[in-house]
Design a protein around this nucleic acid. Structure first.
Lengths: 220, 220
DNA sequence: TATATTTATTTGGTTAACCAAATTTTATAT
DNA sequence: ATATAAAATTTGGTTAACCAAATAAATATA
């Protein structure tokens, strides 16, 4: 009756992977504890167990780093998470900003076969509803080359392919102003004063703050 | 980060519901422990907690019985389980005898909204792949009137609508002889000696032992 | 360099679910 | 009614994940 033991470990793996790939900042106990919202003592304990299981290694300067094995497992979880997100949005009509918590639960369902079938059922999508790439069954994930909207060329047709920030507030804001992944737009003006960007979107002009524009990633 | 606490409780509820509705046998600690494959001390402890939560009550003769609240929760879990089974079979091409363990995991995903959407996505099926009825969102489940094949009339076209036994061995056996829920057949002979039943199925005669025939439930 | 701050670690807890073995209670059979 | 068997309960554990508070070690700052 014990099939739900690995949730914690899986959360550690996923969080670690994300931290490692966010900035090239080294991940220490404090950083991981904060990201997981857990007590450092708890995290230390778990990191040791995961070290025994060869999922992470602790370097001389106390940096916590995923091993190859750990990375593979992390990518598997990310794969599940993103495939389930596609399912929720495409098949169950959820909006892209509503699916995170559910996918967080579904990603822990233990069955590679299920994931494979789900992938086929969804038509082997390459990205999730937020534009993030979906790793293949071997854990290979192609990096999508993007640049922030603030860096993109003016007067050219460009497409939003991903987000640099997946917070609920940001997703809701985008929803509110009617912007979504896959939308195309043209930068009509770049205001030097406050770095805001004015674009033409669905025939209408739209001004985006520096904060917003820098989190909108477009195809390079 | 604590969203997976209720698995145990949910398993107790579901098992209790099934035991109560199998025979009208009263469920005691031993019976429940055996069904859950857990130590009686463990079950006793949990039953007490569930009693505090008003999910079960323990009668004078130590019979453990679901309260209305408990029944409602149990039906909700059964509903989820059966809907996920439909999903796995209809959408992911699993065979009906392969889905139980996966559905066992999926049933614990916590979201009424998800279940509702899943139901709509599946076209609001009334039965699962084993022919068992799916409770509605309020926990109402219509009892399907069936009779064992051994009791059915001769020479009439009858349809298998459910199984009296969902063990893996039985499901595999049915798969092997090519029988499935929804199949129609006509009883050509009922052998008095060993109570075996000979039927015409897909134009071919097929003899079923008393054991098998009694677990094949047909529409009444 | 000495002090302050941050980070890591240890220590001594907790809760939920589990178990085995001993004991008590209840039921059954003679 | 008593021995026996079965069921319920108690007792004293375990493990996984968590925490707070104390301490130690490392790093930064004055």
């Amino acid at each position: 009756m014990q099939h739900f033991i690995h949730h914690s470990e899986e959360n550690y793996l996923k969080t670690l992977f994300k931290l490692e790939n966010k900035q090239d900042k080294k991940v220490n106990n404090v950083a991981l504890s904060k990201a997981l919202d857990l007590n450092p003592a708890t995290v230390l304990e778990m990191v040791r167990k995961m070290n025994d299981r060869k999922l992470v290694e602790v370097l001389g300067d106390k940096t916590i780093r995923l091993t190859e094995k750990g990375k593979k497992k992390a990518l598997q979880i990310i794969r599940r998470h993103r495939l389930w997100e596609v399912f929720l949005v495409e098949k169950l009509d959820y909006k892209w900003n509503e699916v995170h918590d559910l996918a967080e639960q579904l990603e822990h369902i233990e069955s590679d076969d299920l994931v494979k079938r789900l992938e086929l059922f969804l038509g082997s999508p390459s990205v999730d509803p937020h534009g993030d790439p979906i790793p293949d069954e071997h854990g290979k994930m192609k990096k999508i080359k993007t640049q922030a909207l603030t860096e993109a060329p003016l007067k050219k047709k460009i497409t939003i392919v991903a987000l640099g920030n997946s917070s609920d507030e940001f997703l809701k804001y985008l929803d509110k102003i009617g912007l979504a992944i896959g939308d195309t737009l043209v930068i009509s003006d770049l205001e030097d004063f406050d770095k805001s960007v004015t674009v033409l979107h669905k025939k209408k002009p739209l001004t985006l703050s520096k904060e917003v524009a820098s989190s909108l990633l477009v195809a390079v």
